[in-house]
Design a protein around this nucleic acid. Sequence first.
RNA 1: GGGGGCGUGGCGGAAUGGUAGACGCUACGGACUUAAAAUCCGUUGACUGUAAGGUCGUAUGGGUUCAAGUCCCUUCGCCCCCACCA
Length: 832
Amino acid sequence: PAESSKPKFYALSMFPYPSGNLHMGHVRVYTIVDVIARHKRMQGFRVLNPMGWDAFGLPAENAAIERNIPPAKWTYANIDQMREQLKDLGISFDWDKEVTTCSPDYYQWTQWLFLQFLNMGLAYQKEALVNWDPIDQTVLANEQVDSEGKSWRSGAKVERKQLRQWFFKITDYAEQLLQDLDQLSGWPERVRLMQANWIGKSIGAHVTFTTQDGDDLTVFTTRPDTLWGATFMVISPEHPLVEKLTTPAQSEAIKAYQAEAAGKSEMDRTAEGREKTGVWTGGYAINPVNAEKIPVWIADYVLVDYGTGAIMAVPAHDQRDFEFAKTFNLPIKVVVQPQDQTLDGETLAAAYSGEGVMVNSEPLDGVPAGKGKGKSVEAAIAHLEAIHKGKGTSNYRLRDWLISRQRYWGCPIPVVHCPQCGVVPVPDSELPVKLPDNVEFSGKGSPLAKLEDWVNVPCPTCGTPAQRETDTMDTFMCSSWYFMRYPDAQNSGAAFDPAVTNDWMPVDQYVGGIEHAILHLLYSRFFTKVMRDRGLLTCDEPFKRLLTQGMVQGKTYKNPKTERYVIPQNIKDLANPVDPETGDALEIVYEKMSKSKHNGTAPGEVITKYGADTARMNILFKAPPEKDLEWDDADVEGQFRFLNRVWRLVTESSVGAKGIAPSSSTKPLIKAEKDLRRAVHTAIKEVSEDLQDEYQFNTAVSELMKLSNALNDAGIKQSGVYTEGIETLITLLAPFAPHIAEELWKQIGKTSSVHQQPWPKLDPDALISDELTLVIQVMGKTRGTVQVPASATREELETYARTSEVGQRYLEGQTVKKAIVVPGKLVNFVLS
RNA sequence: GGGGGCGUGGCGGAAUGGUAGACGCUACGGACUUAAAAUCCGUUGACUGUAAGGUCGUAUGGGUUCAAGUCCCUUCGCCCCCACCA
């Protein structure tokens, strides 16, 4: 059929960072996506299976600093090398759709997308706390700060610093991003849960207190019903009202605490454990429901960017508040009384959060405590809304996405800061804002900010001297829309033609690592929704189905005493490994491949020695795709043997396949032929099923092995059924081992490509057997089997079982109370 | 602390509630070979038995069922995500 009339299938694998070398993890993802793509093509789909490069990022800048190689040169050299390695693996990518995020052809449109967000009010600037390296004069990502709070490069103690940063308002889409998870039935449940968890919706209320100065002080709480038990308030050290609330007497202590909190990284704050710290501002707020005057404290356990950055503290019913109250000797007031005991704030040993009824909470007294219809939370919200002091609301853990980075090797943010006009977008006609290449890399400060020629430009609006933004974008920006670009990768006039991209979207199958379960997938979903609202996409969700493949782990020889990893070459007897230095017995454990563990295997070595097909087969066969895979070079031999067996089966002994036409229905089949044909069609059924719903490549490969074994054992090599079997084996093998399959296809005299063959069609009649193996159970225990005609009725099955040798042996002298007959399977005799 | 997952031979792993251990690796035995490699054949959950066979067996203890690796509850162990989240 014409290409355009076929149904579409968009297969997508997460594009790699071009580090320069393919590792086993890459081999795994791309082999998986390739099997899927090849199978779909044979099934008659038009398939898009593109590849590209997530090419901005730190390693290129590090190479520039350490080895004085320009980041672009380093990156493109790596891309060329990895592209060749992927081709060696035989992955059927559509190379004409290749995208490279660091190429101006691509990042021009990343910039354009940024401006769409800006126009739509979804991009904004605000001060934010960042990790600042005082020696290198640069901002650090969280991953670049070690567990002791020091910079990975300079070793300097990292500071927290307020800097003006760009954000995307992903929080505007929090509810949609949460709701639409329900549509993603083709995603692993755990990924959906991780996303839901990350968005972190909690339902509760905003409650407005009034400070002594008459300012509103709003808190978010999931338990507004316990408001009557609030005995103090805690606001974060960065809260805007801190200064106003602080009395002169407390001023010094508050400032000291604020400074201490500011100096701490997030690591430090959590590393401290659970001990509560805080300082009283000296100020008070009025509880809106009972007019009680309660003190306002600051403490770093209240986070400025969660909720409203302020909480009401109910020590009787919240453990954190309880600990705080005990530490600082604050009053504890019980407002929920359980049925079976009487709580007293004075003697309480821990916060009580169980069931009970409301007390000391007029007008809620007597209402059952808790969430749900007719319970106290609902009643409290109704009361608050009635007195206009609060309202029911939801809060999300999700925060706006900080997209700016103070780095060179990223996509420049296309705005100009004008003293007259403020933030001015660079006009579309002047995009892309290109990264300058005459840059010096000292490792200190932002290289872009130092380039005066580049920074100083006239304002696009008013023409007065202005400055370019010198921040670049988070690389997650580039990867949040690449799948929209692929279908129309060559378009030089737009990010993509909606007609073209909408034809392919959504992605039918996405394959990638679980490490992207949250950020990349969430950002991509966010971008898709924004593009939909911008009128460019028609789908709500970008990825219909998601497969998260497990890690590839390498075999390590570990000394359990010294915790050291021994180089395998240094071990004399690998079967009984012993540490050559200490003499300790080594244990074999599989861990993430790394140089320091001496457990890496370069895919290139395997390909050179055994061929790409062997590498592919081994990685598919060793474990189900979503599980971690233990790579052992020794196993590769097994796959190599299998492919060699198939090779010999076809080339040496296949007289039939070469000269004899596949089975025709003109002649009745003899039993051996029927048996072989059943094996052939069982393989078609099983392999097809394994590639259909849940991808189970490991069992698919084992079915191919079974078919190969059946053909090998068949004594009817002159039969047309044998020819059918050989042709089927090669065709089924094609998506898995494309090179060998193609070669064998030529060997049996075909002129077309095996990859253009239709996927083998199952003949259900071929599966039908004249006989079946009936299992005989007595009291649920399997006692034996008997061959019976497949056509036997229930009654006949029971009789066959009874009269069989096994049946007679076990039933002699026994009374059968009941016989359970499962047609086609078994008979179970229940004795009295 | 919250959420989720997993536990099956020496190993990787198979099993719509219906013969547990498919398929493969390792190991052992044999054939071929002057020899080795490769290849081919056989054995390979434990205990027991000359054998036919029997008993036990899917982390643990219980339950549901004619029948449980599979469903329900207990306990133990491991892994992942989030986490002073109000």
